[in-house]
């Protein structure tokens, strides 16, 4: 009996090793494209033109990065992306928290009907309304402004839905206790309940940030002025050029340069991001 158990444990440990090895192999496959890009970015454009295999051999150079530092719109694009993503996230958090609290805790005429109508919005894909929205923003003179880039994301009902659920999960005794202290409704919301929703705020904030950061079509047709390009649009504007001018190494350096800040931010906050994303599943 004891022997049997022991052999089971050995088999288990062996199995663990195999699984670990397979996962590590997959992780290597995962990072290879990134490493390849980093490699390309460290080679001179002239050398790459002849043979990309030269990535594996010296000489390497930082020339492409230097070229970006002296003359590329990438800084501006990065800044725009940060402004738009942070702005949209804050906006979504503010609107969703208020609305979530309203739907979960307050009575007003037609509340249930309105809530169901908002839920229907979950099924409306952005692309189905994007052309009309574009015309609307033209009429309102909102193109090529930060507001124009942020507002569409704030109209999506997902955040409201999430926050409503979260507020409802908080026991009403909490409000009642505060009510006894004669606190106003807004004060209860602001001082008592909102801090309790921080995990949900984090989840929603990160989802919204990633959505804004990766959005492509809307910024492509709304932020059309080069100074309003977000990172996605800016990088695309250099990669699809008919002319061969920029060079492979330079393009890759730009990609690495643009990808690195967010990767670093991600690594710093990894623990929280993981926790936040996990929050969405529960």
């Amino acid at each position: 009996m004891a022997a049997q158990l022991a052999s089971g444990a050995v088999g288990r440990r062996l199995g663990d090793r195999v699984i670990l090895a397979a996962t590590i192999a997959l992780a290597i496959v995962m990072v290879l494209p990134m490493l390849w890009a980093v490699g390309l970015s460290l080679k001179s454009n002239a050398e790459l033109l002849v043979d990309t295999n030269s990535v594996l051999k010296a000489p390497w150079t930082l020339r492409n990065y230097y070229d970006i530092l002296i003359g590329s719109g990438v800084f501006r694009w990065l800044l725009n992306s940060i402004i738009v993503s942070v702005g949209m996230s804050l906006g979504v958090l503010a609107l969703s928290s208020l609305a979530g609290y309203g739907f979960a805790r307050l009575e007003f005429p037609g509340r249930n009907v309105i809530f169901v109508l908002v839920l229907f919005g979950l099924a409306i894909p952005e692309q189905a309304v994007i052309l009309v929205r574009h015309q609307l923003f033209s009429d309102l003179d909102l193109h090529n402004t930060y507001a124009g880039l942020m507002l569409p994301g704030m109209s999506a009902p997902f955040g409201v839905f999430l926050m409503t659920q979260y507020f409802k999960a908080i026991p009403t005794e909490v409000d009642e206790a505060a009510m006894l202290d004669n606190a106003s409704r807004f004060k209860i919301f602001w001082r008592v309940l909102l801090p309790m929703t921080l995990p949900a705020q984090a989840t929603l904030g990160i989802f919204t940030f990633l959505h804004a950061w990766n959005d492509y079509w809307w910024p492509l047709v709304s932020g059309t002025n080069e100074q309003m390009y977000t990172l996605t649009v800016g990088i695309a504007s250099t990669q699809m050029n008919f002319a061969e001018s920029a060079g492979l190494g330079y393009l890759m350096a730009q990609a690495v340069f643009a990808g690195l800040p967010i990767l670093i931010v991600y690594m710093f906050f990894q623990k929280y991001i993981v926790r936040a994303v996990s929050g969405a599943a529960t």
Binding site: Y216, L231, A255, A258, I262, L263, I273
Partner: peptide, 12 residues
């Protein structure tokens, strides 16, 4: 590692 690619934008 497996989550890292999710933070890159589509152009990259």
């Amino acid at each position: 590692v497996f989550f890292s690619s999710s933070v890159l934008s589509v152009t990259i």
